[in-house]
Design a protein around this nucleic acid. Structure first.
Length: 490
RNA sequence: GGUCGGUUAACCGAGUGGCUAGGUAGCGGUCUGCAAAACCGUUUACGGCGGUUCGAAUCCGCCACCGACCUCCA
């Protein structure tokens, strides 16, 4: 199996030809969500980016194992002070439910949202809380090899020790000495030998709910550890691709590299891929900044910043229109443009079946197909791919117009091209059947209501009442309010 | 302050040392009873100042502005 896929490797800061370790298999690990709140637009970015990668590698014929974790323990709100509250526990306390109820609730909504965005399920979706034993075993290895030490029931990773043999910070381009010299002194971490040491195991305070027994204390694993433990378990000591958001590069992925390298004595990940952020008014969208829009809000339009609802495919198209390593700035204008562009694409796909082939052709579909592959091979350049697909849209419409001609083989190739790139690889789908009908119904009702209002203005009560009666028998109830009529299904 | 990235036309957003990215919006045209759609054409593009080059928006330097990360974040 051969390919010309080049992937930008954060580790080397270069595009590199993708060569898998064990043909025909490919292993991908992507950092998934911490499930303590609704998924927001930012979560859609890595999900769609790596869904595209998963789909493309699968299309190329690889047997891909795609692992995306669920963080359900150990992710604290403020690790600097050492006493940060676990996000999930905090939510549980606020809502007076079990932490695992919080986890279940938001895993469910996350899955629902990901389905709506038409992302394929990962091959394995491991949870941190389900791999406590694996994490404890990894800690034992780290302690034994001298890269971690126990302190008052907690266990910390020894950064200085690690840095003697390996290079801490190489992924994010950081130098440990610089980090140390730039650090303000913060109180409350006397348990650590060095302020940069990070917890791999934390002793639980008496009131802490999520706790497991370990050789060191009743406690819980450090946030970074789960990814090392679970990626090694499911993908092996060396695997192909590790992905995640750019904001995770430091410290999360840096710590992950340190843990895995210290435990195994070798590089675990061959290609590191990082998607960029979504910004809103030029600033990163994040829960902590309070400027985030959840996916549910986006799909319903229920948010002060939204002038209308945007369908899941509009969001997917919007995200694919930018390259995954660029930031995308959110705005209603941009989303409306994406919506129209997406509809134009879908409309052309519908028209494709109706094309009347000629004996000869003015179109080079093979060339177009090559360009589509070239775009994807160039570090998943989805915007470039879309621009080529819009060339296909122009072709379809021009054939209908009669300004271009296509023969039977060309027609078949073009159909295959759209099917492959639009649906199979980009993972778009036609949602006009559902959403379009809903919109149509609304528009039809408006017309009917306006006609009835005209009748009422003319005091044409028989007509007005007839409309209301017949709608009622069709299952639609009209309500005459002060501001005008409203309708709803019975 | 440190590290890294960005600044492209009305908006979003690719890309390249010389050749139209694309979408949306606008304008003109074809078509059309009118409109819509579609097609064709089109609008002040590449932050500023220097340098390298036959030629730079693309490479180099400086400056300005914006953003990300620097133990919360997808």
């Amino acid at each position: 199996m051969q390919n010309n896929l080049f992937i930008y490797n954060t580790l080397s800061k270069k595009k590199e030809l993708f060569i898998p370790i064990h043909l025909p298999f490919v292993g991908i690990y992507v950092c998934g969500p911490t499930v303590y709140s609704h998924a927001h637009l930012g979560h859609a970015r890595p999900a769609i980016t790596f869904d595209l990668l998963f789909r493309y590698l699968t299309h190329l014929g690889y047997k891909v194992r795609y692992v995306r974790n669920i963080t359900d323990v150990g992710h604290l709100e403020n690790e600097t002070l050492g006493e940060g509250e676990d996000r999930i526990e905090k939510k549980a306390r606020q809502e007076q439910i079990e932490p695992m109820e919080v986890v279940q609730k938001y895993v469910n909504t996350y899955h629902k949202n990901m389905d709506q965005l038409n992302t394929l399920s990962p091959s394995i979706e491991p949870r941190a809380s389900g791999h406590i034993i694996e994490q404890i075993e990894l800690i034992k290895v780290l302690i034994k090899s001298g890269y971690a030490y126990e302190s008052n029931g907690s266990v910390y990773f020894d950064i200085l020790k690690y840095n003697q043999k390996y290079q801490y910070g190489k992924l994010s381009g950081r130098v440990l000495d610089d980090l140390i010299s730039n650090t303000r002194d913060i109180e409350g971490r006397d348990e650590k030998r060095n302020p940069f040491d990070f917890a791999v195991w934390k002793k639980a305070s008496p009131e802490h709910l999520m706790r497991w027994p370990s050789p060191w204390s009743d406690g819980f694993p450090g946030w970074h550890l789960e990814c090392s433990a679970m990626s090694i378990k499911y993908l092996g000591e060396e695997f192909d691709i590790h992905g995640g958001g750019m904001d995770l590069m430091f410290p999360h992925h840096e710590c992950e590299i340190a843990q895995s390298t210290a435990a195994l004595g070798k590089e675990t990940v061959h290609y590191w891929m990082h998607n960029n952020m979504i910004t809103i008014n030029g600033q990163k969208m994040a829960r902590s900044l309070g400027n985030f829009i959840t996916l549910d809000q986006l799909f319903t339009g229920d948010h002060p910043l939204l002038v209308q609802a945007y369908s899941p495919m509009t969001i997917r198209f919007f995200i694919l229109q930018a390259h995954y390593r660029s930031t995308i700035d959110f705005s209603n204008e941009a989303l409306q443009a994406a919506e129209k562009g997406f509809q134009k694409l879908m409309k052309a796909v519908e028209s494709l079946d109706k094309l009347k082939p000629s004996d000869n052709s003015t179109i080079d579909v093979i060339k177009l197909k090559e360009k589509c592959y070239e775009a994807l091979d160039d570090d998943l350049n989805s915007p470039m791919l879309l621009s080529h697909l819009f060339e296909g849209v122009r072709i379809v419409n021009s054939v209908i117009d009669g300004t271009e001609k296509i023969d039977v083989p060309g027609h078949e190739s073009l159909k295959a091209l759209f099917s492959t790139f639009v649906f199979e690889i980009l993972g778009l789908k036609d949602e006009s059947a559902s959403i379009g009908n809903e919109k149509l119904t609304g528009d039809l009702m408006k017309i009917i209501i306006d006609l009835r209002q005209a009748a009422k203005n003319n005091k044409d009560w028989p007509t007005s009442d007839k409309i209301r009666t017949e709608l009622k028998s069709a299952g639609v109830v009209l309500k005459d309010l002060k501001e005008g009529a409203e309708w709803e299904r019975e």
